[in-house]
Write a protein that binds this DNA or RNA. Structure first.
Lengths: 229, 229
DNA sequence: GCAAAAGTGTTTTGAGTACACCCATGG
DNA sequence: CCATGGGTGTACTCAAAACACTTTTGC
């Protein structure tokens, strides 16, 4: 079967930069390409847009199919359209950033992917296509975004302590933060709820566990509040 | 002539939300569609991606062809990919935001455009496709972007006075600013150069003319400086 | 000289910074 | 009872906000 058009068309693909947080490091999910172009190379999860599908749905679908990852926050990152970015032909890629809480969940290689694995952001293998470029752009975006949007909570478990949050922000922003001021700022925003629970299995005073309160956050937004680190 | 592919492909288009500043108002450039789908409707300048062309170049080309606008700052806005956004078939649109200094320049309708015209942002005609949605997203982006990036200077002539800059920012941000504090903040940033020249033809004390100093701005950025209004 | 808008001084407030300290817990 | 890290108090600094004032210019 084949499809005919009056004018030439570039193929449309989606690629996802999936961030996770584990072992005190930012991580990115990569797949090892199966029986296709650039076989055996590590690459971002992604694939071609199907008929009558939004790019958002394509990204969700590919992520599920190739890595088993499902509930994540997805956001458009950038469009990469250099005619030579894919050796085969002109393929434009709509890149997405995804944030996930579950770095330890079972990752399952699927369709088109020989393997799927988390890699520390600062120790990545060589990548297929222009995916190193995509990751570079994504890294910048993550940093910018973290300054003014509460994305830290998307990378941590639902309940977390401030001792978990601070190193995460330090990793994203690439600089040290002062404990006291970080705590005052975050708690002072009034967008966290104290669960009353405490950390367990630590050899010192247990930290309190908080939850991000999306309702409070949205309400504050409407009154001109700006999250800012 | 026709083009055949193994799988179905959506068509790729680009659309530009071009902002201008004139008569104390934010304006958007629209074209009246010629001999095509939705003929006679007003729409954003844009069109289909050509073979081996980046989306950025396509946007530049369409802008030139349809409106005669050339040197502008262009930036990716968002990808609109609802399968029903175009009645004909699945067309995904890569939308761009463009800023231009020259609201009064000669606008020339060209290929595929019966007419091209500036419209005040708050008094737009009904639009083809999902272009009202695109403009809505662009409006939000402009506001966000203006908070932390010096885009105001892209909308004003190279030389301008603070009296011009302030109402522009008030229009973009949708709120009044205090004269003294605005001036202190902008000049305090150290990214403007006083040209030594003054306003002319005003019936009161002439304001000093400034230039945005891109070099100074870039240098400051490296030292951690953040533009912020 | 008067109207109009440019341009400047100054106080108050609150957030960000830096540093020092007390508290709870496991071993 | 001590090491470890959680949690708190507070002085200092500086930018943002609010408001009042002086200066320049055309008519």
């Amino acid at each position: 079967m084949s499809f005919e058009y009056e004018y030439p068309r570039a193929a449309t693909a989606v690629d996802c930069v999936v961030y996770g947080w584990g072992d005190g490091q930012l991580k990115v999910m990569l797949i090892e390409r199966g029986n296709e172009t650039e076989e055996g190379q590590w690459a971002l999860p992604g694939g071609f847009l199907k008929e009558n599908e939004t790019v958002e749905n394509a990204a969700k679908r590919e992520l599920r199919e190739e890595t088993g990852i499902t509930y994540v926050s997805l956001e458009q990152l950038y469009v990469f359209s250099d005619p030579n970015r894919d050796k085969r032909e002109h393929v434009i890629s709509i890149a997405f950033i995804a944030l996930t809480k579950r770095v330890t969940h079972k990752v399952k290689a699927g369709t088109d992917a020989a393997d799927a694995q988390w890699f520390p952001l600062d120790d990545l293998p060589s990548l297929a296509f222009d995916h190193d470029e995509i990751i570079k752009v994504a890294r910048e975006r993550l940093k910018e975004k973290a300054r003014f949007q509460p994305i830290g909570f998307d990378l941590l478990p639902t309940e977390f302590c401030l001792r978990d949050l601070q190193p995460l922000y330090e990793a994203i922003l690439g600089r040290k933060l002062e404990k006291r001021n970080f705590q005052k700022k975050i708690l002072g925003m009034g967008i966290l709820t104290n669960t009353g629970k405490k950390e367990t299995n630590v050899a010192h005073r247990a930290a309190e566990l908080y939850k991000f309160d999306k309702k409070k956050y949205r309400a504050k937004l409407k009154t001109g509040f700006l999250f800012s680190i």
